[in-house]
């Protein structure tokens, strides 16, 4: 029974890749989707298009403006700050994607069954997720302070040479942001994987174990194919969230020291609102959008490509 219930599950996951069957059209009417389409088109497409027009102007965020063609875009790609922001954004996004998925999956596997305190630990590990990113950053600022707990801990275990001014160190500051991001979102990724693991029949794993498969083989060939939907969701969500990283950077380093942790999103914010260069900021945000679309397409291509192979 166990194995028979699992086999169709895998088959079903693959079904969308096959040709659609005609009968299914009967089940849904098109107009049901209209409210969702209308509200998202109005809020996203129409309003963003209106705002995006300013990318081709020299508008200062208030008052009159002129159209300046592609000047703002030329400025982005010619400046160091624009390039640095792109690199930092990519570093944080991929570090975040990898960090949350590795730790989230490990925790999910470890807490899936067996451990007595598992329900309690699942809640506790999820707790950082419910805090607002701004509150999280304030707490961590205390931890990273020059005389804060992190440096005192390093001192007490004899690692004085590791002590530094974490949030203003040109090299380590971007890592401090990454750690906070991963700390906050690992619990969420864990839950997504736990949900996936709950659908993996234990009997299937046991059968593989009897056949002599070790832990890694069992994960690779039995468990992972079954939790692929969780993997797709977790990786897509984390990638998009990582590429838009803003709150943590603003609250922890403000983009410093000396622009070392500036990201596209913080630059967009600073240019459009703080420096009164709305046109330039709008152009920057369009660049950010294109970057996210390209990376997401690559990511989707990779995940679906692997799906076909397996």
């Amino acid at each position: 029974m166990a194995i028979s219930s699992a086999a169709p599950a895998t088959a079903r996951v693959k079904r969308p890749a096959s040709a659609p069957d005609r009968g299914s059209k009967l089940f849904a009417s098109w107009w049901w989707a209209i409210p969702a389409l209308v509200v998202s088109i109005l809020v996203h497409y129409v309003a963003v298009a209106v705002g995006g027009t300013f990318a081709f102007t020299n508008w200062k965020g208030i008052g009159a403006f002129q159209f300046v063609g592609f000047d703002n875009f030329a400025k982005i790609f010619s400046g160091d700050l624009g390039r640095g922001a792109i690199l930092n954004t990519l570093f944080l996004a991929f570090g975040f994607l990898i960090g949350t998925n590795v730790f989230g999956l490990l925790l999910a596997l470890a807490l899936n069954r067996g451990v007595k305190l598992r329900y309690f630990l699942r809640v506790v590990i999820f707790m950082p997720t419910v805090l607002s990113p701004l509150a999280v950053s304030y707490i961590w600022r205390f931890i990273y302070q020059p005389q804060g707990p992190l440096n005192s801990f390093l001192g007490s275990v004899g690692l004085e040479s590791w002590q530094r001014t974490w949030l203003a160190d040109p090299v380590s500051s971007i890592w401090t942001i990454l750690i906070v991001m991963v700390w906050q979102s690992t619990g969420l990724v864990m839950v997504i994987y736990l949900a996936g693991l709950a659908g993996v029949p234990q009997e299937l794993e046991e059968a593989a174990a009897i056949d002599g498969a070790n832990v890694f083989q069992r994960f690779r060939h039995v468990v992972f194919p079954l939790i692929r939907p969780s993997f797709v969701i977790a990786s897509t969500l984390m990638l998009i969230q990582g590429l838009r990283v803003f709150d943590q950077v603003m609250a922890l380093t403000g983009g410093g020291p000396f622009n070392a942790t500036e990201t596209l999103a913080t630059q967009v914010y600073k240019q459009t609102f703080a420096y009164g260069q709305f046109g330039y900021g709008a152009a920057l945000s369009l660049v950010l959008t294109v970057l996210i679309i390209v990376i997401s397409l690559i990511q989707m291509g990779l995940t679906s490509g692997r799906e076909r192979k397996s």
Binding site: P257, N259, A274, Q277
Partner: peptide
Amino acid sequence: PEIYNTLGTGVQGLLTGQ
């Protein structure tokens, strides 16, 4: 505002040696 901002971030860069 960008001039004052350049000064402010610049001072931090001076302190960190960047």
